[in-house]
């Protein structure tokens, strides 16, 4: 994965738990790097190692960390460092999600070593959309749910995100229903 992901894990930990916890996580994960460069490619094992160590050091479940990381990724890392790219992807939640598949294709063109996931969308309605997530990386569906939640917050749109298909339970991919209708506002 690109360094921006590891950088984001670092920012999430240091912002919420302090630098000492981050150093402890790095030590536990056996990560030697002092600095991650956003546009450099790092082994996936580094990211998985950091998240695994974070669950132990912070005493949180993997799902809690992954969801928080998804939201943090959108609301802090992406907004602060890639804000213009993020804003240009859509004027509202619906547009953003609809454009997400194309966004990932364009991102893959820019970052040659990136192996991005594939998104598809279906059943776009005035208050909902179904998002399909395909990835060779296991165990990140909760992270994706956190990403959708973060995007909804980015556009100030209260939304409910429900996972409707689970790759780790035998489905061929993960599927999410993103609903921003009136019921989601309550």
């Amino acid at each position: 994965m690109y360094g921006m992901v590891n950088k984001s894990v670092q920012a999430l930990v240091t912002t919420n738990f302090g630098i000492d916890k981050w150093e402890a996580i790095k030590k536990k994960a056996g990560v030697k790097e002092d600095v991650f460069l956003s546009n450099e490619s790092y082994p996936d094992a580094t990211t998985y190692g950091l998240i695994g160590a974070a669950t132990e050091v912070l005493g949180l479940s993997a799902d809690e960390i992954l969801f928080a990381f998804g939201e943090f990724w959108v609301l802090h890392t992406a907004r602060e460092e890639y804000g213009d790219m993020l804003s240009s992807a859509g004027r509202n939640l619906s547009e953003f999600l609809e454009y997400l598949p194309m966004f990932h294709i364009r991102v893959a063109l820019i970052f040659p070593n990136l192996k991005p996931p594939r998104f598809e969308c279906s059943d776009l309605q005035a208050d909902r959309i179904t998002m399909h997530y395909y990835s060779h990386r296991p165990g990140l569906s909760v992270f994706v749910r956190g990403l959708f939640s973060g995007v909804a917050k980015l556009y100030n749109t209260p939304a409910q995100i429900t996972q409707t298909k689970f790759k780790d339970k035998g489905d061929d991919h993960d599927e999410f229903l993103v609903y921003w209708g009136d019921a989601a506002k309550q």
């Binding site: 213009d84 804003s87 240009s88 992807a89 859509g90 004027r91 547009e95 609809e98 454009y99 194309m102 966004f103 364009r106």
Partner: peptide
Amino acid sequence: MQLLQLVLN
């Protein structure tokens, strides 16, 4: 692009 109300799509 943002100033011109344009999005990638």
